[in-house]
Design a protein around this nucleic acid. Structure first.
Length: 474
RNA sequence: GGCGACGUACCCAAGUGGUUAAGGGGACGGUCUGCAAAACCGUUAUUCUCGGGUUCGAAUCCCGACGUCGCCUCCA
């Protein structure tokens, strides 16, 4: 089967066909760096990473761009409150964001453009909109997009602009718009606010224009996939489409993908309500980054996901189950001949995994296929019915699948060589067990545990794996 | 008020017309083991929010009720 996505634009399940088969172009709305991102934000970034990884796994070359919004009202407000330049504030939170991405195993995008570094591109785009009559200036030097000039406005969000509820929370009179629904492309200069001098005048960009300008800069006027949280559908992405297509006259994005909210206590996780959890806080409570990743990944992206401690308990057990079977396979040895049933099981699991994800990234059946395989492999390990090559191939298959999931290897340097001390202790313990010296054996097990090495005894002898959170280099 | 999503076991979550309702977690029982851990086996939904209807047959389709959440305003 082929890859299909549920396109927010139109709502249909559509077969994915890249505009350029040799290069899938994808853009994700990134963070506004005025505070550490919370795990609700990261749900959308982990989701985008899943799209990116799955496309690559399917054999596509992907160019992935994620913006960093480093100038906006909240950034200006918070920097002023601290008495620092906005760049000082935003570089602080940008660094933190990049660290969080790394720990959550989110692939580094090919480009992460900053808004403040693309002011000229935005000014050019706005100039075009002015020329074409889709934008107008106000007395204070601001420039607005004229929604009345763009009949398709509202298509993405399925909103009828004429019936929008306006008036309840009309923006303050700070900017003098022709129509309350018009949105700011450019904000005129003000005292105490950062300002750039451009051909369209002094001031600073509005929010939506940066994504249009930067996506076009790196991906061209038309590209394949645009991702974001469901709350960006309106007005952000609606505005992006309007201003982009009005400027270029070409279709902006082919497939829009939006993930639903992460919830806490039954409600959307959000900074404004204070109802949130940040990655660092989860780690401080003892949860591992990969368990957090798994918890964010394990539900379908278009379904709301309630985040609870139970979900982290489940995620922790699930990822440990995966790394345990991998460790067992890696250490498995047998003189047996290959069992053709193993190759069949691997192929069946691979196909089921792919079929599930092909269907609009249906992660739950994909994971079910993985865990069905894990149970089968554990059974075979217990029966010693595998050959050494069977075990090696099984581990290879799991690691291949993990190119998409990125949850199987323990955090903190799983692939690293363990120290000579650990190897010596492991050997000593084998000798102690051979001599049935249980006291010595148990003492060595404790010593190894203190070094982050979990030792288990099986019918086939001693088996070990690295404990979560230890790097095994002690 | 408009638009949208949703209600499946103790928890999370697949399944969208037809043999025994995936998978993960938790709990309990068992096997293995010097002990421990891991693993494996078994038990945990005759039933899918409720009430009607269509059908030979529905968790799956239709109507209604109740309940939850989101967007319409900054927001992943």
């Amino acid at each position: 089967m082929s890859l299909r996505f549920r396109n927010t634009l139109g709502g249909a399940l559509e077969e994915f066909q890249p505009l350029d088969p040799a290069n899938v172009r994808m853009y994700s709305c990134g963070p506004t760096v005025y505070a550490p991102a919370h795990i609700g934000n990261f749900r959308s970034f982990v989701f985008a990473d899943l799209v990116r990884r799955y496309l690559a796994w399917k054999g596509y070359r992907v160019t992935w761009v994620m913006n960093i919004t480093d100038v906006d009202d909240k950034i200006i407000r918070d920097a002023a409150a601290e008495g620092i330049a906005i760049g000082t504030l935003t570089s602080r939170y940008t660094d933190g964001f990049l660290d969080d991405m790394t720990r959550l195993r989110i692939t580094r995008p090919d480009a992460m453009p900053r808004a403040t570094e693309h002011i000229p591109e935005m000014a050019t785009l706005i100039a075009t909109l002015l020329e074409r009559g889709h934008a107008y200036r106000t007395d204070d030097g601001s420039i607005f997009f004229r929604i009345a000039s763009w009949p398709a406005y509202g298509t993405l969000a399925r909103l009828d602009p004429t019936t929008q509820r306006v008036g309840e929370r009309v923006e303050t009179d700070e900017y003098d718009k022709d129509d309350v629904r018009d949105f700011a492309l450019w904000k005129g200069p003000r005292d105490g606010e950062p300002s750039w001098s451009t051909p369209i005048g002094d001031g600073r960009p509005g929010w939506h224009i940066e994504c249009s300008a930067m996506s076009m800069r790196y991906l061209g006027p038309s590209f394949d996939i645009h991702t974001g949280g469901i709350d960006l559908v309106f007005p952000h992405h609606e505005d992006e489409i309007a201003q982009s297509e009005a400027a270029t006259g070409e279709p902006f994005v082919r497939t829009w993908l939006h993930c639903d909210h992460l919830r806490l206590g039954g409600e959307k996780m959000a900074k404004r309500t204070g109802r949130l959890l940040r990655p660092a806080e989860a780690y401080a409570q003892g949860w591992s980054p990969r368990a957090l990743r798994y918890a964010l990944l394990a539900a379908h992206y278009r379904a709301p996901l309630e985040f609870t401690e139970d979900s982290l308990v489940a995620a922790t057990s699930a990822v440990e189950r995966l790394s345990t079977v991998l460790a067992a396979l890696d250490q498995y040895e047998s003189d047996r001949l290959d069992d053709p049933g193993v190759a069949q099981a691997l192929e069946a699991a691979h196909d089921a995994f792919e079929d599930a994800l092909d269907d609009d990234l249906s992660i739950a059946p994909a994971l079910a296929a993985v865990f069905d395989l894990v149970r089968d492999l554990n059974r075979r390990i217990g029966d010693r019915s595998l050959s050494s090559d069977d075990a090696r191939r099984a581990a290879e298959e799991l690691r291949d699948i993990d190119q998409v999931l990125a949850v199987m290897s323990p955090d903190d340097g799983p692939a690293r060589e363990v120290s000579g001390l650990v190897m010596t202790l492991l050997e000593e313990r084998v000798a102690a067990r051979a001599a049935r010296d249980w006291a010595r054996s148990d003492a060595l097990r404790d010593d190894l545990a203190a070094l982050g090495i979990l030792v288990e005894d099986t019918r086939d002898g001693q088996r070990w794996r690295v404990q979560e959170g230890h790097d095994g280099t002690a």
